[in-house]
């Protein structure tokens, strides 16, 4: 337990641009108080990544992003020792080659540890990396410190950052890693919450139009032959398209304009057309 905990932790609230369910707000605050990483899972487009931005905004902390790719290694998050640059400098006599520290570049976690104030670290799509990746980070996330092997310097967090991890569950995450996290699954928003979410993106939208859109949207998601279910972000885009083209609630009756904004797969479009004509 770090003694850097301020006694009056601010708590996370819904921001002007992000609507969080009560459940989600609670879980973020639990992770903040317990100072444990928060693992978020959910369908694509349920706002997992946006949550990190909202938390940073709400708590007025800087946000440090770490986008994980299939080739990302745990080490990349801590620091990178640029040997090639050093070799190069020594070859051409540039820079101070004797000072190894000059060639140590801190990664996202390293930056967060060294930051002067508490920050939010987003480890985005952790499941994209190798299966061993989360395990390699266990110690650093627990102790919130690491040692730069090349110089022996210890990088320790003055303020334990709030670590938010998102996953599409493409891979099973290791148990040891899961045990240390607080976990939340972002359920697909029910219509009531969706109304609030849409209002954030399209303020002043005609209520009849909105109700029509939501009805069609949830109907579409319920169709078994639609494999790639449209998500929140697609609904927001779709309403945007309807608004820009000046269509009103009347135009939605018996028609499905801009269906391609909601359904991205040819097979889904065809399956639906077949159903509607048949």
């Amino acid at each position: 337990m770090s003694n850097a905990t301020p006694t009056t932790d601010p708590s996370f609230e819904t921001t002007s641009s992000y609507i969080a369910s009560d459940e989600l707000r609670q879980v973020v605050n639990v992770a903040l108080v317990l100072q444990k990483p928060l693992l978020i899972r959910g369908e694509p487009g349920t706002g997992k990544t946006l949550l990190a931005h909202a938390v940073a905004e709400s708590l007025q902390m800087p946000l440090i992003r770490w986008h994980v790719k299939s080739t990302t290694k745990a080490q990349d998050g801590l620091y990178h020792y640029d040997t090639v640059q050093r070799l190069n400098d020594s070859r051409f006599g540039d820079g101070d080659v004797s000072e190894i520290e000059n060639y140590i570049k801190l990664g996202p976690l390293g930056q967060a540890f060294e930051a002067a104030r508490r920050s939010v670290v987003l480890i985005d799509e952790i499941d994209k990396a190798d299966v061993e990746f989360p395990n390699d980070l266990l110690h650093e996330l627990d102790a919130m410190s690491f040692t730069v092997a090349e110089t022996g310097r210890e990088v320790a967090a003055a303020h334990r950052p709030f670590v938010l991890i998102t996953s599409n569950a493409e891979k099973e995450l290791p148990d040891a890693f899961l045990r240390r996290c607080i976990f939340h699954y972002i359920d697909f928003p029910p219509p009531a919450l969706m109304t609030d979410i849409v209002a954030v993106h399209h303020p002043g939208l005609d209520q009849t139009l909105l109700q029509q859109c939501l009805e069609k949207f949830y109907w579409l998601r319920d169709q078994p032959q639609v494999r790639k279910k449209p998500s929140t972000s697609e609904l927001v885009d779709w309403i945007g398209a309807l608004v820009r083209s000046g269509l009103d609630a009347e135009a939605l009756k018996g028609d499905f304009p801009f269906l391609g904004v909601l359904l991205k797969k040819e097979a889904d479009l065809q399956a639906l057309r077949g159903r509607r004509s048949g």
């Binding site: 459940e23 609670q26 879980v27 639990v30 992770a31 317990l34 693992l39 899972r41 569950a169 995450l173 148990d175 899961l178 045990r179 996290c181 607080i182 976990f183 939340h184 699954y185």
Partner: peptide
Amino acid sequence: TFYGLARSILVKRV
């Protein structure tokens, strides 16, 4: 609140 709290800490798989 306890329901959500306990789930977020104890249950890590949907």
